[in-house]
Design a protein around this nucleic acid. Structure first.
Lengths: 377, 377
DNA sequence: TGCGGCTCCGAAACCGGTTTCGGCAAGAAA
DNA sequence: TTTCTTGCCGAAACCGGTTTCGGAGCCGCA
């Protein structure tokens, strides 16, 4: 009815698209016989518009189906109502299985506020930084979510210098001026360790994550705290080399099994390393959940299909995405980054990889030794 | 040097961000002492600018580091230089494992042309349509990539009516006016069938995909063509009920094994169904690659970790994303949709699930029957 | 009655680009 | 020499919004 009138009076094709023209702010203004400046101020909640006209205007806008064009607003305000996300997608990307959930969370939260998400993906760290700079230069987004934060992160420097709002997924060494969301991996490692100790394990090892991540340090501390709580001494030999992949996990497991007093249980900083432990154990005829117990962290889907299922502390990626988006929007709206920090717990998913030890460390060493001799004969 | 001058002369803070001001088109014009209209036309390749000044202008723009603001351009041109992508992310999303690769492909191609990707995700078909409409209304993207196209797809209607360019990932029943990219699943099914026949299988079944997808029909035809090429008769009993999930795959397998003449080999339209076959075979004491052979399609990562590895026809998702982005950009630039259609082959990944039959169909039936009786006793 | 202050809104400038229109100058045709 | 093109560019309008500025009313108060 009303919408029709407007569409009839200024039917005209714009660009390639034919179709009926959008309802603009001028249409609303003309329809009410007032100036478009007033309409703009009313819709943006300026205080110098009377409540009466504010109501008239918002009702008319609603009826006519007026929605401002974010890029038309942006030219004056500098804000495009979009969140930026530059992913690093490489071959060993541990975040890959969580991507869908994470994106779901981010975009849902953005949609709720009528924002959009601008995304890019690059294979290397350097290209990520370049693309990030480009997006900042061209004002494609009002702020950025930084996944996979490193201990010292170049992206942070870039964005701080450019004075562009951002939120990190994961803490860094120096978090001043930074907003972040993180999961308490250290608590998970601690709980994993005490849990294994309660099952009767006394030789509990830890396979940490990559050194470039701050969380690696935190998780090691969590592991040590768990040992302490269980009354076990920390043995540096049980702190394996770092492993972020299946292959590296298997290698780390090999080193642990070569020890004079090998561990009967292993806490892994990431699921992929744990799946490497499965492989290594398999190759040595050791059964997970019997001779070797494992608890890991992340919650990758493969863990559920492994045999036995991998007991792990799962991260809720969708929630992480959602919270990060909301924090970022608040940040863009001017909130103090120091007030925008959140820690969430990981959830224990009990499957079959953590049981009481079938063999003591000594017996395990004996058995590995026997195998070795058999092979050599 | 030159850049510095400009930055010094008009240093002024805009909005929240402090930082030095961007270089605008006026800066370039003033620096050269010409009008900004001329600069714009030169940079956009209008024919009424002499080659000499074109060169001067593009060089100056380069030196000053001028990049036009896409949203400032958009207000006049209606083009934001962005590709839209609305994902449907639900629990049984088969596309999930490919998402990272796919996004990588799309964003790479977009970046190459200095475009961006605007993304959204919704859990249901209806919400996808709503979000799509919103993005169209607000001109957040110049065109859309439609993944997971259905036989009859509401999104297509929406976009055709709104006269907004789009490209489909997958063909539909009626592809008029549509650009698309697809993988030759029918060829893969045909090759899988002849391959199994060549290994000595004579009872080869097919577990098709969901009826809502057009490819399901195509793949069934491919399967039938394979039978024909191998000189085998088509037996309707060997066309199992559809299966898109592990659970449904196991159920379909159950029905096939209940047949008087059960198949010794199965061609699955999707990997997930094949993994369900693994589960079903396992439960019946049948070994994949021995009593039962399987070849599937998709290339999900779990297939590599299954035991034995799943032989499958893998789709190159990154390439798909890249091609789709390029096709869409061409479409937005005005190319005829009929000229924008591409078919890519799937790649056979040989693992261990397809071997010569260890048992004939009759022997298999006998064995299943024995088991059944044992159970019942 | 005059004056100051406050509320509320219109007019117009502005943001950073694009596009239309018209005119000047040089070369070609008459 | 005059006229008609043609090539090339400046001036200004325009896109759809936001924001500044000022002024018209209305009120209260001296």
């Amino acid at each position: 009815m009303i919408r029709e009138e407007i569409l009839m009076t200024n039917k005209r094709s714009v660009g390639v698209r034919a179709g009926p023209r959008r309802v603009t702010i001028s249409d609303v203004a003309n329809h009410l016989g007032i100036s478009k400046g007033t309409v703009s101020r009313a819709l943006n909640g300026y205080p110098d518009i009377s409540e009466g006209t504010k109501l008239r205007i918002s009702r008319a806008a609603e009826r006519l189906g007026y929605h401002p064009l974010s890029h038309a607003q942006a030219i004056r305000t500098g804000r495009v109502r979009s969140l930026g996300l530059v992913l690093q997608i490489d071959s060993e990307d541990s975040a890959r299985p969580f991507l869908a959930d994470f994106l779901g969370g981010v975009t849902q939260a953005a949609s709720d506020e009528n924002w959009t998400v601008t995304i890019a993906a690059e294979p290397t760290e350097e290209r990520v930084r370049k693309t990030l700079s480009r997006l900042v230069d061209e004002q494609k987004a009002d702020g950025f979510i930084l996944p996979r934060t490193l201990k010292q992160d170049g992206r942070v420097t870039t964005l701080l210098n450019a004075n562009v709002p951002f939120v990190m997924f994961g803490r860094t060494e120096d978090s001043r001026e930074c907003a972040w969301y993180d999961v308490k991996g250290e608590d998970a490692m601690r709980a994993a360790t005490t849990r294994l100790a309660a099952l009767g394990h006394t030789r509990i090892a830890h396979i940490p994550g990559g050194d470039q991540y701050y969380y690696t340090q935190l998780r090691i501390e969590g592991y040590e705290a768990g040992l302490k709580a269980a009354g076990l001494a920390f043995d540096p030999a049980l702190l394996a080399p770092e492993a972020m992949t299946r292959r590296a996990g298997a290698a780390a497991f090999g080193e642990l099994m070569a020890l004079p007093e090998p561990p009967t249980a292993i806490v892994c900083a990431v699921d992929r390393a744990a799946l490497g432990v499965y492989r290594g154990a398999n190759a040595r005829g050791l059964r997970i959940g019997r001779e070797i117990s494992v608890i890991a962290y992340d919650g990758v889907p493969e863990g559920a299909y492994a045999d036995p299922g991998l007991t792990t502390f799962a991260v809720n990626s969708q929630q992480a995405g959602e919270r990060l988006a909301r924090l970022l929007i608040e940040r863009i709206r001017g909130a103090d980054p120091e007030d925008l920090r959140e820690l969430a717990p990981a959830t224990l998913v009990e499957r079959g990889s953590d049981k009481a030890p079938a063999l003591s460390s000594t017996e395990l060493a004996q058995r590995l030794n026997d195998q070795h001799e058999i092979k050599n004969v």
